[in-house]
Write a protein that binds this DNA or RNA. Sequence first.
DNA 1: TTCGTCATGTAATGGGTTACATGATTAC
DNA 2: GTAATCATGTAACCCATTACATGACGAA
Lengths: 221, 221
Amino acid sequence: MSRRSGILEFAVLGLLRESPMHGYELRKRLNTSLGVFRAFSYGSLYPCLKTLVQQGWLIEEPAPPQEDPRAATLAGRRAKIVYRLTAEGKEHFEELLSQTGPDAWEDEHFGVRFAFFGQTSRDVRMRVLEGRRSRLEERLAKMRASLARTRERLDDYTLELQRHGMESVEREVRWLNELIESERAGRDQRADAPDERQSEDTGGGPRHPGTTPPDPSDDTT
Amino acid sequence: MSRRSGILEFAVLGLLRESPMHGYELRKRLNTSLGVFRAFSYGSLYPCLKTLVQQGWLIEEPAPPQEDPRAATLAGRRAKIVYRLTAEGKEHFEELLSQTGPDAWEDEHFGVRFAFFGQTSRDVRMRVLEGRRSRLEERLAKMRASLARTRERLDDYTLELQRHGMESVEREVRWLNELIESERAGRDQRADAPDERQSEDTGGGPRHPGTTPPDPSDDTT
DNA sequence: TTCGTCATGTAATGGGTTACATGATTAC
DNA sequence: GTAATCATGTAACCCATTACATGACGAA
């Protein structure tokens, strides 16, 4: 009855925080912006939206006034339902953003969490990145152990598969290392541009994490 | 009622083809040998085993005679149920092995299929590898297109996530390229060691695929 | 006029996990 | 004696997909 997905809920709230949208568009964003990792179907999305409305996190709005005169025939196409984040929804999302349990760095969640790092405070970002890294290192240790145990009994293909899998994990660890270092560099950056400083950038606009070049003007249509 | 998992069924049949096992051990193998990608719980495994028995692919056997005298007290531990592949099961698995639809190269299936390449005929291996590769290239094209469309609207983190995701896919494509070339080299290898040839190596022992990349004493710590 | 895309939804189904129940054996 | 591991199983639940139902609009 309740359809509390966790990950889908999180992503929907996060996307709607940037700007109101209707379901169809929301799904597209879900499967492009964030969707390298996960693809959701309408069968999941629409029920999810309903429960979010029931929770009070979202409100449904009729189609916004179109500037295009052709579409003025009372809601172009089938009457869109635009979903907007409520104040309570915003608060709820902010709370979700601040959580740093294992739920934040397991495979299914990490990607989506990362996608909203722009809205996440720096210390939470650090905890999530480090959590993910240690999770992966744990996994590497297990893989190495199991490989050492069974090395001789495996055929070439199984071995190659294992090797490639381990390399993938190692690669992600290196990636995380760079990101973490980058975050640290950003944090310790107080010598120059001191006027940019702010005690907590949780709700503020997305600031670049150090090495990444600053963006001129980001505009979310 | 039926619990036809596809992927789990496949893996179970494949592991039992190598040697009979009881459920507990089977699960461990599932989560080490093949399990970098997927971890199954007893809640899936045992019901699956039951239906496989009902299908006639497996038979339950009482614990095998233990050579260890201490365990001779009528089935060491709780009476193990050893599962053995029947002739029909073997036939069925062979048929599954020969299938090369999209089911073979999608994310969820490819790893397990690859793990049993040792039992797979060369032409099927080729089709699966090439299928996977074109699937990934398709995905890359989509990612690049979507990136080109939305490049400016994305914040640094989302961009970085996307970039890393694409790199991962590109890396797998390169891996597949090497494997495919290796397979081809193996196929065209008729100048030397001609007595090793066999028209179909489907059911035969695992032959190394020519220039198998994995080096013996390769240890990347 | 038919196809592709936009747009919203529901019911049935699938494939899996978690938590629980049970109990023997081994190692400390 | 008690904790860990071995060993098998079930029921309740979860999250998501697929297939379906409906329908409007724009372009070929």
